[in-house]
Each structure stands twice: as C-alpha cells, then as structure tokens.
Amino acid sequence: MPQELTFAIPFQSPISPHTERARELHLRWVRDRGLVRSESGMREYLSWDLPQAAARTYPYASPEDLVMLMNWFSLAFLFDDQFDANSSDRADRVAEVARELITIPFRPGGTPPDVECPITLAWSEVWSQLSDGMTESWCNRFAGSWGRFLAAHTSEVRISASGTVLDFDEYLALRRRTVGIHHSIDAAERSRRFEVPVVVQAHELMRDMRVAAADTIACMNDIHSLEREERRGDPHNLVTVIRKHLGTSRGEAIDAAVKLTNQYLERYLELESRVPQMCENLGLDASERCAVERGVEGIRHWIRGNYDWALETGRYAAEKSGPAAEAESRGQGGVDDLLLPRSGVGPARRQHQTV
C-alpha cells in the first residue's frame, strides 16, 4: 500500500524527450564502469528505472547532460545500497569511501582518487563533467551540499551498526540531511546552464524553501519506500520511527506520516508565493529574476518528478524475490559489492611517491 499512496501536488513536471536514447548510453556506462556487474544486479537495477527519475527531475537538460545526470544518479543510489546496518566493518568501509567522494570535488580536475573502487572512479569522471563551465561559487556550494549529504549517510551507518535507536526529533534532523535534496537542487542549475544569484541563495526565504522541499521529499520517500525498508530491517524510516515514538499501529503511523508530509508541502507552497516580493525587495534585474524563476522551477521538478517516479519504480516494490530479495534480507539493497576494487580485497589506496 505505501508505494501506492498519492499526494495532491498542485503542479506538474515534464519528462525529457531525450529519455530513451540517454537511457541506452547510461546503461552501457554503468556496465562498462563496473557499477553493475552481475545479471541479477542488472535486473534489479533496471527495475529501479533511475533514468526516468533523472529525466523527470532535470527535464530540460541537453541529451549529453541528461546522460551525465543519469550516471550521477546511479552513483548516489548504488552507494546508498552498499550499506549493511549490521556490520561495523562495513561502516568503516563506507566511511572511507564516503570521505573520498567528499574530497574529489576539492581536488584539481583530473586528479585520480586516493581510494580506488568503482564508485570513486566513476564519481571522479562524473564530477569533471558536472562542474564543467560552472563558477567556483556554484562548485563550492554543490560540493558543500554533497559533502554534508555523504557525512550524514556515514553517521547513519554508524548509528545502525551501534544499535542506537533515534527518537522522533533526532530522526527528522538526520533525515533532513540524508535525503540529499540540496545538492540535487544545485544540479538543476547545471542541467540548464544558469546560476541563481548568490544574494538569493543567501536569502532566508530561499534557504527555508529548500528545507521545506527537502522535508516534503524525505517524507514522501519514506512512505513510498516503507515496505522495502521493512524487508531490510532498516529502522531509519519515518513511519517506523513514528510507530515507535507514538506507540501506534502501522496504519496510524502511515496516516501520521502522510499528514506531516502535507504540512511540509503546504509550507513550501506558502514560501514559494513570497518569491516575487523577495525579488522586488532585492532589486533584481530581468536576467536575475529569470534565474530565480528557473531555480524555483528546479525545486518544483524535484518535488513532482521524484514523486511521479516513486509511484512506478521497482526499487520500492512491495514484494521481491531472487538475489535482490536475499541481499535486502541481509541488510543490503545491492547485489554487487562496489566498495572493493574490481580485482582486490579492500578499497585500494593510491600510493603517493615522495620526490
């Protein structure tokens, strides 16, 4: 039932006309980079339909950029699925790879990663494309959002490995960071080659809008992914936390999560209605206002596009069988291990020579 739950979102998001060709190129890239190696892993990955997610959240990207954004999506989702909540050793490996993923945007372009595995090598390639042509201000903003997202995920893995149970407020604070919406909204600018003015990014209204959007998307995602996370025994889900916090039934917890989601959506819409006045108060010119409008449109695309994808993706399917289901029962979402070098035993660390 949770994946089938619908929300009254009062706006639409288009889907890119380049989806199918970009999908073909993306799937070839995923296989070539060793991100999906087994046939069972590919069947599971295909069921997620991440290309649709990218095509809905970045509908105006060029054909080439859409492929790049699909490639980036694969890294974020496949890395998330490398987590094993029951293993402290796995938590250490996740942390090491996460630190490398955080560091890559701050190195000179073309620098090989220090920790080499399929995820880090692929991200180094994608980042060089994602950052191409963007200002240093945008790159720093994206890298900061990306780093906070990965650091939060590392914390989540360690919390799970330690057996710590978060209360309601602690979970909401963590989920706001692990949902990863801030850097995803930043990427909307790259997808259309524009940048929201710095003065707007720093404005309280824009900051509040991004938080409200993140909260809305996080809650929707937790509702739609509930059955998947129940199969995995993953306690980091809004419905599960509400159920424990309030001592309610599963159905009552779902109802409470839906109510909270609608509150966050209403909050976002109310904030968005203030954008024209903000532009007036800041004295923005026509080109700056156009960039702001595109930035707001990018947030809308994420709220609606991610929602439309979540209703259809096999990633959140109520029932699964085969290797994917077996991996989930062990606390993993992925079939293939991507934190090891393709021919090694642990995340390889590149040796630096002293000259």
Rank of each mutant, 00 (worst) to 15 (best):
L27A: 11
R243S: 06
Q3F: 09
A54N: 02
F194M: 12
S184W: 08
R267S: 12
R274A: 13
P112T: 03
Y58C: 07
S74G: 03
T57P: 09
A257K: 00
R294C: 13
E204C: 12
F168D: 13
G331I: 08
F79E: 05
L238E: 09
S225V: 04
P2I: 01
F11I: 06
E100S: 03
G334H: 09
P347V: 08
S124Y: 06
F194N: 06
L340N: 12
T248S: 15
N281E: 11
L205R: 01
D167P: 05
E20F: 14
E270K: 09
E125T: 08
D186M: 01
A213W: 01
I119C: 07
A76L: 15
R31G: 11
F194Q: 02
V179L: 15
L260M: 11
Y316R: 04
I242P: 04
F7L: 11
L166G: 03
R23Y: 00
C139I: 10
Q351G: 13
E272R: 07
P108F: 09
V36K: 00
R177Y: 09
Q82S: 05
N262I: 02
D80C: 09
Y268H: 05
S74I: 03
Q353W: 12
G283K: 01
S145L: 12
E229H: 08
V196F: 14
Q3L: 10
E170V: 03
L172N: 01
T216V: 10
S191P: 01
L35H: 00
L121F: 06
E4F: 15
R141M: 13
L246N: 12
Y45E: 03
R274G: 09
V30D: 07
D285L: 09
Y60C: 10
L172C: 15
R330A: 14
S329I: 07
Q351D: 15
R243A: 07
Y45V: 01
S87I: 08
V296Q: 05
E252P: 00
E195W: 03
G163E: 07
G147R: 04
Y268R: 02
I254W: 02
Y268L: 04
P51V: 00
S329P: 07
Q82M: 15
R300N: 06
L205S: 04
R176D: 08
